[in-house]
Simulated assay, not measured.
Amino acid sequence: MHKKAKAKEEASQMFLKIANAYEILKDEEQRNDYDYMLDNPDEYYAHYYRYYRTRVAPKVDVRLVIAVTITVISVVQYYGAWSNYNSALNYLCKDQKYRIRATEIAKSEGLISASRKRKGKSKEEIKEEEEATIRKIIEEKMDIRGGYSKPKATDVLWVQLVLLPYHIVLYIAWWLRWVWRFNIKREEYGEEEKLHIIRKFMGLSQAQFDAQEEHEIEEYLERELWIKQNFTEWKQQKEEEMKSKLAESARYKMYRRYMKKGGAGQISFGPD
């Protein structure tokens, strides 16, 4: 019985060795690692790394992980942009100023009848149609810019990555043209170039700059803010105006009195 048990144990160990050898030989990467170990027996740490990399590391292509991650980000980004756009549109539809203007346009174009009586339609259905018409007019007429603008396919991360080489080439060409025209030939700036310099001085993105009102853009051009000195003076003036407004604010006065008395860290030695 003892010999049989010993033979059975040896057979079991032999089976494990054969199975392990089969696992190594059937996988090309493990087979190469094994050959490398035989050729370089002194590289202990490298052998450990290769072994655990094969055994523990997930069998997933890194490129697939990156692609899935970018796809998820793109989907979230796209639907988030649509959510912002719809929020802005809903706000405009509820604002009386825009509703009245949209209603006037709809009536002038015959999209909404002055009389609410329509054959075969209830008051609720007529109201829903009018709301849809007003929303459509506001969507078409209103220029929603900035972070709440209507999403475009080119805003999605996947598309931006695909178009990245193209945009890099465009930027290099634009930069070379800028240097040639304005640094070498000393041409005068056009309106587009002036606004570009002003935007850079302000540290705004293109979307943030486009979200500003037309009268603000006109003021920038009138004040010639593309000139550094003019921009610095204008910025100081705006900061002074902001300080004056804050000084006139009742809440800000209360805050200053509070801080003058010691603020949140005030220590009193008087009786409670």
Rank of each mutant, 00 (worst) to 15 (best):
M14D: 14
L25S: 04
E128Q: 12
I66R: 08
E192W: 03
M202C: 05
E43P: 00
M254S: 13
K200D: 13
F209A: 12
F209E: 06
D35W: 09
E104P: 00
E109Y: 11
Y255L: 15
T54A: 08
S268W: 15
M14K: 08
Q212A: 08
N32H: 07
K59E: 11
P271Y: 13
E130S: 15
A211V: 02
S244H: 15
H2N: 12
A11Y: 07
Y91W: 10
E233F: 11
R199F: 05
K121Y: 03
E239P: 01
E222H: 11
Y91E: 07
I144E: 12
G203V: 08
V162T: 05
N84T: 05
T232K: 15
A250R: 13
R118Q: 11
K136H: 13
S83N: 11
R186Y: 07
E193L: 01
E187L: 05
E10D: 08
E130K: 10
M1H: 08
K194N: 05
E29I: 07
Y189R: 00
E239K: 09
K253Y: 14
T133E: 06
L225M: 15
N20P: 01
C93R: 04
H215L: 14
D39W: 00
L164E: 00
W174L: 03
K150W: 03
S122M: 02
Q266C: 13
A173L: 08
Y52M: 10
M242V: 03
E10H: 04
H47K: 08
F231M: 06
E125V: 05
G146W: 07
E131G: 01
G262E: 15
I138P: 03
Y98K: 04
F209H: 14
S249I: 04
L204I: 00
Y166L: 11
I227V: 15
E129A: 15
H47F: 12
R50P: 12
E9V: 08
E130D: 15
Y34A: 14
N86G: 00
N183F: 07
